[in-house]
Amino acid sequence: MDFDFSVITDNAGFLAHGVLITLALSLASGGTSLIAGFVLALLRIRGPRWLRPAIVFYIDSMRAIPVLVVLVWTFFALPIVAGVTMSPFTAGLIGLTVHLAAYAAEIIRAGIESVRPGQTRAALALGMSQAQILRRIILPQALVRMLPAFGSLASVTIKDTAIASVIAVPELMRQSETVAGQSFQPIEVYTVAMAVYFLLLYPVTRGVDRFYRRVAHLGRS
């Protein structure tokens, strides 16, 4: 077996562009899912009673449907229903957000509910408003406790962006497929792609773990 890694150097710019799109899609879908997840978690805990079953239903549905299916549906079927056309990146962003927001909502809800209700009662007794309690008592502790789960969510997000390759988002996975197909050197290309993904993902999981160990004491009460 002879390996020829010149295919990588020849296509370095093309593949590097894929890495950039992977990072951009990860950051964008990570950010939107966190915001959407936060809103969903608050609505589930504090929102009107009639809304709660709908949110639980949405979250459980996302736990049941593969992200590939969500992405393919968003890209191919949603434009037919909504009558709009979307770029693959936009469809990827929407599909990933719809999927990941459910997981983010569960993490945030668990974090908020992990703060003992006695603290809320004590703060109410001190005359704080609900918003003040959330901002000054609950969230500072809950956010620290959510950190490890957010770390694995970040890793899941980066891994899920690779699935967006099936709807032709030009991220690293897709670019690797293209180069592998044109060069007939899939082994070299995919092995390098593995190394790149590992180098992207390993520091995220490890970095969050290390950061959490340093701040964990702030979440105790």
Binding site: I158, K159, I163, S165, M173, M194, Y197, T205
Partner: peptide
Amino acid sequence: NLPLILVVYWAYY
């Protein structure tokens, strides 16, 4: 620390 879809392609080749 690898996307599963990449492992699938890699295994295939």
